[in-house]
Design a protein around this nucleic acid. Sequence first.
DNA 1: TAAAATCCTATTGATTTAATTGGAATTAAA
DNA 2: TTTAATTCCAATTAAATCAATAGGATTTTA
Lengths: 133, 133
Amino acid sequence: MKLSVKAKYGLTACINLAENYEKGNLTVSQLSGKVGTTDKFLEQIMAMLKKAEVVSSTRGAFGGYTLTKSPKETTVGQILRAVEDNLQIIDCMGAECKCNEPCSSQVVWVSLQKTINDYLDSITLDSLIKGEK
Amino acid sequence: MKLSVKAKYGLTACINLAENYEKGNLTVSQLSGKVGTTDKFLEQIMAMLKKAEVVSSTRGAFGGYTLTKSPKETTVGQILRAVEDNLQIIDCMGAECKCNEPCSSQVVWVSLQKTINDYLDSITLDSLIKGEK
DNA sequence: TAAAATCCTATTGATTTAATTGGAATTAAA
DNA sequence: TTTAATTCCAATTAAATCAATAGGATTTTA
């Protein structure tokens, strides 16, 4: 049950955007330097964050990305769900389950999923950049 | 962040062993029928569970598998860690982290890891087969 | 009009997953 | 003592996913 590097790069990028929230835009190439990946790969990750409305962009020269909402209102859960296929831990969880019979372990997947989402939604970017637990 | 099918097959197998705990052994081929996979694939999963001492085996004719400890003492966390590479959600988490600087998001990975493990260790096989939440 | 930037889409190489295959070793019963 | 049933061990493979690379189109400011 590994998180992909998109989670790591996406969260790190958003932490940088949070630190810069009052100051304005950051470009992909500014962010990729901080994050430690290529512009082209981070572009794709930023596109996912934008689609989920976690970040907003302005195009053209002097453009870049900002957080859509303030660091206090942006949670780690919002970010990770945007870049990690909704953080879904298993396919077999709802009506789309292909099991013959309702499987006895499904209650575990459903409750674990909720535990993960609730926990990650309890962490805001603001708390992270202020170094709170 | 998907669980593999080993998690699903492994947990389902263990639930079946829990239901049979007073009655004795179950063979791989009995279990694979319940679980919905092939004998040969389930064999590999049972080997992982055995290595982690979640299950015990007896070889030869009339052999098979049982839970090492009672359903009350066996947790879902023990099972999933056995078959899912210790449930480790990201490589970059301890001394082995390859980051230049200690990354600002590491606190999230460490605390999420603990949240997942603690939650899954709070669920016993006994509670599952009795249908408790 | 030129430079800087996001946006869009396709391809690729490496890794991981989910099996499949073929047998060796062990044990109980006939 | 042989046979059938079973776990144990190790290698291979096909398909899927991941992480990146590539090439350009579009938009905006100076």
